[in-house]
Design a protein around this nucleic acid. Structure first.
Lengths: 190, 190
DNA sequence: CGCGACGTTGATTTGCCTCAACGATTGTGG
DNA sequence: CCACAATCGTTGAGGCAAATCAACGTCGCG
């Protein structure tokens, strides 16, 4: 059942009753994405929070020189969206697309807000998820202002070996804010 | 009254009843900090979430070369803590101290957890605060991987003119991950 | 007063980027 | 199923933004 992985994932943080599970199911919109398919394009308004069931997605911006800068990856069990756009209703500055064939659950913003009222535990769930994201972000920021390219790369493959194995190196370079050439040279030195 | 500023601040996000306000007051521990005084030292465990009533604080790490890297500033109305330490109970990697004589409210972790149960609106408050922090962090990360020192500095003074006026330039340099000399040279060019 | 904190300026170095060329692999349309 | 085009990683040469190192002036404060 497609729902199983979702409810198992969130059970790490909140315990739902059967009734609450039934209330939740209708808001989960199951979607399949082909590799390279967009979930969101910059300029559109982001309307959904997305949970990854299977596969790998990325969120990224494109600067005026046409360079992509990856804000985040999301693999099985992770959430992804353009949060700012979702929150404010403004046009997304980020693109989100699939790096592999993927399956996701999308939750409409309005559905999520109702869900908060019907099943307040979700308020707690997202607070916890945001707390974790907050900590991860802070560490990434500190890495960015205090470490060399090499340190950041090695720290990345230590922290996210799964992602390192799945996505092309130049995507990781883009996430770390360094060039693919530099990554290649770092790797050469054992 | 010292409480006024606090409740006025959070009223932007949640509306408390008089009864809820009275439940909240006892957990707010009022504290004064002298300039340069520590609120938290790396190695200790962070036990409190802190709201700034007056003044300016900073959270920062010190690397093996003795260089400070500022994770965040907090002025009136902002919250500050070593979130990771607070969350996990592990030793703080960050120091927090006052850049000016300051006044704060500290909330003990255990008190906050009880407060979530007694006044669930606080669950919502912190979710909203975390959402905002999430967005700010994401923008800071993207700036770090896609912009030059000059762009980041100018963007900083555009976004936080108040902070730029209050704290020494080398602190801002440390926040942006660039050297004080570079800031000085950027400023020279008009 | 004298010392430390802060900012500035100059000379030099360096880590990383840019640009360019080249194999290897993948995948895709005829 | 092959041919050709992307995609991906590697390597080299050269350049540049920002760091480093060092010296100096100013201010505020104990």
């Amino acid at each position: 059942m497609v729902f199983d992985f979702f409810f198992k994932s969130i059970s790490r943080h909140i315990k739902l009753t059967d009734e609450e599970i039934e209330l939740t199911k209708p808001v989960l919109r199951h979607k399949k994405l082909r590799k390279r398919q967009y979930l969101l394009q910059a300029g559109d308004v982001c309307k959904v929070e997305t949970f990854v069931i299977k596969g790998c997605l990325r969120a990224y911006t494109v600067d005026d020189k046409g360079h992509e800068h990856i804000a985040m990856f999301a693999i099985e069990g992770w959430w992804i969206s353009d949060f700012y756009s979702l929150l404010t209703g403004s046009e997304a500055s980020q693109n989100i697309d699939a790096l592999e064939d993927s399956e996701v659950f999308c939750i409409e913003k309005t559905d999520l807000e109702n869900l908060y009222l019907q099943v307040p535990k979700f308020e707690r769930l997202f607070r916890i998820l945001l707390q974790n994201a907050f900590v991860a972000h802070q560490q990434r920021i500190l890495a960015g202002i205090s470490q060399t390219a090499e340190e950041r790369y090695k720290s990345f493959i230590g922290k996210y070996p799964t992602i390192e194995q799945r996505v092309p190196q130049h995507q990781i370079a883009s996430y770390l804010g360094i060039t693919p050439e530099t990554i290649s040279r770092i790797r050469k030195l054992r």
